[in-house]
Design a protein around this nucleic acid. Sequence first.
RNA 1: CGGGGCGUAGCGUAGUGGCUAGCGCGCCUGCUUUGGGAGCAGGAGAUCGGGAGUUCGAAUCUCCCCGCCCCGACCA
Length: 577
Amino acid sequence: MLRMSTLFLRTLRDDPADAEVPSHRLLVRAGYIRRIAAGIYSWLPLGVITLRNIENIVRQEMDRAGFQEVHFPALLPKDAYEETGRWNDYGPDLFRLQDRKGSDYLLGPTHEEMFTLMVKGEYSSYKDLPLALYQIQTKYRDEARPRSGIIRGREFVMKDSYSFDLTDEGLVESYQRHREAYIKTFDRLRMKYNIVSAMSGAMGGSASEEFLAPCETGEDTYVLCEKCGYAANVEAMTTVVAPADASKVAPLEVFDSPNTPTIDTLVELINAKFGGGYDGSMTLKNVMLMADEKPISVLVPGDREVDLKRLEANLAGVNDIRVFEDADFAKFPGLVKGYIGPQDAKKNGITVYADPRIARGTSWVTGANAKDKHARNVVNGRDFTVDSYVESAQIKKGDACPKCATPVIIDRAIEIGHIFQLGRKYADSLGLTVLDQNGKSQVVTMGSYGIGVSRAVAAIAEQSNDELGLSWPVEVAPAKVHIVATGKEDAVFETAEKLAADLEGAGVSVMLDDRRGTSPGVKFKDAELIGIPVIVVVGKALEQGNVEVRVRRTGEKSEVAVGQALKAVTELLPTLP
RNA sequence: CGGGGCGUAGCGUAGUGGCUAGCGCGCCUGCUUUGGGAGCAGGAGAUCGGGAGUUCGAAUCUCCCCGCCCCGACCA
C-alpha cells in the first residue's frame, strides 16, 4: 500500500520551465521523474512502479509467446562490435569509454552482436532452432538531440528480442509470432497504435514494421488509408503511377523564360505564354545532389520537394547524400542553376534518378540547360532517360493509397515498437552457423524486435491525460485505487484505512491519502494529477454511511454504502480501460 | 552540427550599472481552518550557471567556458 503521508513524492503546482510536451510536463509535475541531464532521467517511486508495471506486462507476453529472457551487461567490450563494423558505423551516437588499461568499451545501444555470440556459444545444431531470446535492459545512445522528456532519451529501457532460424520460412514464422505477441502487449497496455510498413534502414534485412502510437507530439510521420487500412512510414510509402502514352505529344519546344528561377515564376510565365492551364505539378524539378561525392539528379514534380529522408531510405548502397553547393556547380558548367533539365544528363555524366511520378511517357515543362530557357513537351523516354526510379518526392496529404487509391491522411506518432527480419548479416559476420540435416554448416537467419519500455510510459501518458493531469490505464497505473480521506474526524481516517486494507486483501493495489491537516482541495488536485484510475473519497458522505467512487478518466461519481465499497470497486475495475 | 530562446532558493519568477536581490508556491513553528491547490503571524532557505575582465560599484556591461529547452539536420 502506498501512503501519501510517507510516499517519497512532492508534486509541483507549476509546470516545469524545461518541459513542453504533456507527458514530460505531467510526469515531472506529478513526481514520477526528474531530469538529471539532457535525455537522462531518474525515476521516483511512482515512476518506478509504473515502469515496472509496463515491464511486467511486456515480460508476461514475451514469456507467453515462448520467448526466453536473458540479460546482458550494458557495459560491453568493443570486440564483437568491431567484427560487425558497428564500432565505427554507429558513429558518434555510441557511448565509448576505456577501462584503466586503456581497452575500449561501449555502452550497448542495441545488442544484436551479443545475442548472436551467446547463441553461437551454446548451440550448433538445426535441432535447437527455432529460438527466440529477449531481455529488458537499459540502452545508451548519445543522441544528437534528445527531446521531449523520456520520449527520446540518451538512456532508456528497451525490451529487445532476437529470433534464430535455419530457413527464410522459419524467419517469417518467428516474425509473425513476435508480431502477434506485440499486438497482445500493446493491447494490454491500452495503447492506440498502428502497425505500419517501415524501411529496414541501416540494419539491413527485408521486411520491417513499426508500431506507432499516434499523438501530436510524436516525431514520426506516417500515412494511413482510412478505407483499406494501409499504413506506412512516409519513407516506406509507395507511389503507383501508370505509364502514359506519349505518341500524341508535340515535339519538344524550347522557349525563352527570363527571370524564372523558381517553379512559381515559371508557372506564371508559361500560363501567360501558352494560354493557361499549367500548374506546378506539370513542371519537372531537377534537384542536384551529391551521393557519396558522385553527382546525381533527382526528378520530382515541381510542386513537391525532394524528401531526403525518403530518398536516402530508398537509395540502396549510398551512405551520404548532400545538396549541391556552388562549388559543385562550378565543376559542372553544363548545369545552369535554375534552368536544369534531364535532357543533357548523360552528356554531363550525371546519374538520373526519378520519382515514380515521373513515369515513362509523361510529358513535362522543365529547364532547357541554358540561361533563361525552358522547354515544354519534354517526354520521359523520348527526350530524356531515367537511370533508375526511386521514391523520393515528398508525400502529401491526399496522395493516393498504393493499395486502393483512396486519398491518404498523414499523422504523427511515437514509435513504440519495431520488428524486422534481419536476415544473415550478423550471423554471417560473427560466424553463427549450425549443422543441418545433412551435416552441412548453415548460416542462421535472424529477426530483431524492440519495444521502447520507458518510452511507452511517455507514450501512454501522451495518450491518456487531460487538463487535470495523468489518467493511467488500470494495469499500468502505480495503484488501482486512490483513497482520499478528507476531514478531521478520526472516523474518516479509520474508515479509509479499513477500506484500503480490505482492497489490498482482495488483491487491489491502493494509494491512501492519509495526510492529516492537508486540505481537501490539495488532496483532490494531487489525486487527479497522479492519475490513478479510481478515486474513492471518504469524507462528508460518511455521515450518511457512504463513500464516493469516482472514475478519473470520465469524471463519473457515485455514492455507495461503506459496506458495499469493496464490492463496488472490485466490480468497477474490470470495466475500465 | 545550423537557427532561436534561456540559466536568479526545491519549483515558478521579478529585477538593463547604485541601499541588505524582490515576489508566489513549497518547507519549518504557532494559532485558526477542513469538499476543490485555506487564513493570520513568525521563520529557514540564493557563492544570481562557472571563470576572467571593465568599473568607485556588476545578477545587470565585455570575453571565454559550461549547461538546459525548442525548430531543423541526425536517429537500430
